[in-house]
Simulated assay, not measured.
Amino acid sequence: MRIGIVCPYSWDVPGGVQFHVRDLAEHLIRQGHTVSVLAPADDDTPLPPYAVSAGRAVPVPYNGSVARLNFGFLSAARVRRWVHEGDFDVLHVHEPAAPSLALLTCWAARGPIVATFHTSNPRSRAMAAAYPILQPALEKISARIAVSEYARRTLVEHLGGDAVVIPNGVDVEFFASAEPKAEWQGRTIGFIGRIDEPRKGLPVLMRALPAVLAEHPDARLLVAGRGDEKEAVADLPAAMRGRVEFLGMISDEDKARLLRSVDLYVAPNTGGESFGIILVEAMSAGAPVLASDLDAFAQVLDGGAAGELFPNEDAEALAAAANRLLADPGRLAELRERGSSHVRRFDWSTVGADVLAVYETVTDGAGAVAPDERAGLLGRLGFARD
C-alpha cells in the first residue's frame, strides 16, 4: 500500500505527535508498505529518507502551548505537488483542525483520507468558532481516529461526527531492552519534558522537591529537556540545587536508558494532555510512574492500577506520594510489574494493526461485511456521510 502521512508540527521540535508519526511510518515500512511523510522542517534539519520537508514552520499559540506549524500559499503548492507525485492509496493526516499542512492536504486530496485527532481541549472556543471554515475540508475525511477518549470528546463536542479510539503506539521492546546507565541510578527521580512550558509541570515538581529531599537527602532529580535551567531552579534553596541534574536534550536511546535507570518517573503535567506517551514509554522501560490525575493520564495508567496518581498541581500531595514510594521498594517493584504488563496493549504490533485496519477499510470498502455490521463499523470509524 502507498501511504502518505502528514505531520502538522515541525519535525525538528520534539513532541508526541512527531514521535507518533515517525514511529507509525517506520512500523508501516517494516511491514512492507511504501510510506512518505510530509512535515514542516528547517532547511538544515536532517530528515529520514521517507520524510519530505514542506518548508520552515512558524510558531502559533495552540492548545495551551506554542506549536510550530506551516500554512499559506507556498505550503499549499507544496502539498498539492506531494499529493500528486505520491499517488497514494490513502492519506493519513494528523490534527486537521489546526491551521496546518493537514488541513491543506484535506483541501488538496481526492482519494481516501484518514485523520487522527490528538487534541484534548473541551473548552476550545476557537475550534468551535472555526468550524464553518473547517467543515468543507473535514467532510472529505473518510475515517477518524482519536488517540484517547478525551480527544474523541473534543472532536464530538466541537466538530461533530465520531471517531474510533486508537492510542499512540510505542516500541515496548526498545525501552524494555535498554541498558541502565550507572550514573543515572541510585535513588533517582526522572522528568522528561520542555522545561519552560508550564503545562509540563516542572514548577510543580520543583515545589515538591524540598519536602522530598528533606526525607530522602540522597535523592536526585534528573531533568531531560530544553529550556532555561537556571530559571527552573531559581526558587529552590541554594543548598538543594546541586541535587538537580539537567541533561539537556537527549537521544531516543538515552531516553530509554534514563527511564530504565530511575527509581521513579514523575509526570506532573497540569493540562492539555490528550494521551500521555511518556507514561507509556516509562512503563515500557519498567519505571514506576507517579503522575498528576489528568483524565488522560488516569486512562493510560488504568485508573491508577499501573501507576500512582496525585491531585493535579498539588505539590504537597506529589511530595507525600514520592516520599512514600521511595521508602517502599516493594511497592515500586509492584508498579514495575503492573506497568510492564499493562503497557503491552500500546505496542506497535497492536496499535499498528489497528491503524492499518482503518486504512484497509477506507481503501477497500466494507463490501465483505454484512450490511448491518457495515453500518456499525462506519459509525465507529466516524465516516463522513453524503
Rank of each mutant, 00 (worst) to 15 (best):
W107N: 09
V369Y: 13
P8Y: 02
G55P: 10
E245K: 07
L74V: 14
A320Q: 15
A108K: 04
P268E: 06
R68T: 08
V244E: 04
A239T: 14
L104F: 05
P210E: 05
V66I: 15
P96R: 00
P99H: 09
A296Q: 08
T350G: 08
Y359A: 08
T105D: 07
R80L: 12
A67R: 12
L259H: 01
P311F: 11
G201W: 05
A115G: 07
R324A: 05
D354Q: 15
R30N: 12
I133E: 04
I166G: 08
F71W: 15
P210W: 05
G111K: 12
S148A: 08
A208V: 10
D328T: 00
H27A: 13
L209D: 00
S65M: 07
E281C: 05
G286Q: 01
K230N: 13
A51Q: 04
R241L: 11
A151G: 15
L101R: 06
L159W: 01
K255G: 00
A97S: 12
T350L: 12
I5D: 05
R153G: 09
D263C: 05
P59A: 12
G86P: 07
V223H: 02
D295E: 15
A176L: 11
I195L: 14
Q31L: 13
T34N: 07
L38R: 02
W11Y: 10
L213I: 13
H118L: 09
P8E: 04
M1D: 02
G201M: 09
V6L: 04
V362K: 04
V351C: 03
A287H: 00
L134G: 04
F73G: 08
L69E: 12
D263G: 06
L236T: 10
A102K: 07
I5P: 03
Y9S: 08
R385K: 14
E149C: 09
D263V: 04
V60F: 14
P136Y: 03
P311Y: 11
V289I: 06
P288C: 03
P371C: 13
H342T: 12
A319V: 10
P14Y: 03
P99Y: 07
A375H: 06
V58R: 15
S274L: 06
G193K: 06
L325G: 02
G286V: 01
G16S: 01
A219H: 02
A25H: 12
R324C: 01
E85Y: 03
Q185H: 03
H118C: 07
E229Q: 15
G376N: 11
F383Y: 15
A256N: 01
V6A: 00
L326I: 02
G161L: 07
R226D: 11
N121Y: 09
E26A: 12
F246E: 08
S341H: 14
F383M: 15
F88C: 10
V37D: 02
A327T: 00
R2F: 06
I192D: 03
A182L: 13
R338Q: 13
A211V: 03
